[in-house]
Amino acid sequence: MLAVKNIVKQYANHRALDDVSLEVATGSIFGLLGPNGAGKTSLIRIINQITGPDEGTVLFDGEVLNPSHINRIGYLPEERGLYKKMEIGDQMLYLAQLKGLSRKEARERCKYWFEKMEMQTWWKKKVEDLSKGMQQKVQFVATVIHQPELIILDEPFSGFDPVNAEIIKEEILELNRQGATIIFSTHRMESVEQLCDSIALINKSRKILDGKVKDIRNSYRSQTYCIEYSGDTELGFNPVFDILQHQRSEDGQQLRLKLKDGKTVNDALAMLIPMVSIQSLTEVIPTIHEIFIEKVKGINHE
């Protein structure tokens, strides 16, 4: 769907993007992650053709990005906004037509979405008369009204109350099921981790990691498990695992362990079962956030 190749964006005093490449597969949900100021918005603006890169190219469906692609992209900027004094209906029609829809199509699409989001009564209202949450619903509809193939959402859930955030999330997932490719850009990595198929981590203008979420997390698996059990026994040095952490609580005990080379979790269980009664076993896989922290630390130490 989208291939970003060796993009460099230079501002007067700093380099916003330094040789960034990434690929977004058609129909996937892609997370563009990184702290504030990492260069996410600069990259998104380049994809939206708001600014141009100094070096590198962007391919959209295999073609070099050009103005004909604008109508196939829907963009929800981090800085949201609508005309305060314009009626919602007129505003929607205007934005839809700017994205290349005919007046008739725009009207039909508006009708569909206003019904779907239960906002029919808002048509004649002005933005300044709506609550923040309502405004954001309107803004979201404006983003997807032209049925874009690629939807780019910059910090999509910031500012939404939990109810609306859930509604919007469901809509996004439905659009994805219908075939749209989604790019999330956010610094709150935990909020999109479960949603994304693939991610790219950006820090200080450089991409530091990308790939499928599953693959990344697998590659960061460290044979670490967490076992909860009851019963009292003294676990000392043993040939199967190292103990990372041992906590006692009223409900029972919690053990964090790291398997030794060549051992499986079954070996550990086989050793423990005769001694204690096992309540749960989970594999400890680092979250993307933890991976990110580790990565950034590593880079800063270099």
Partner: peptide, 9 residues
């Protein structure tokens, strides 16, 4: 802040 929405079109 509508300007960014508009100039993406």
């Amino acid at each position: 802040r509508i300007v960014e929405v508009i100039i993406s079109s």
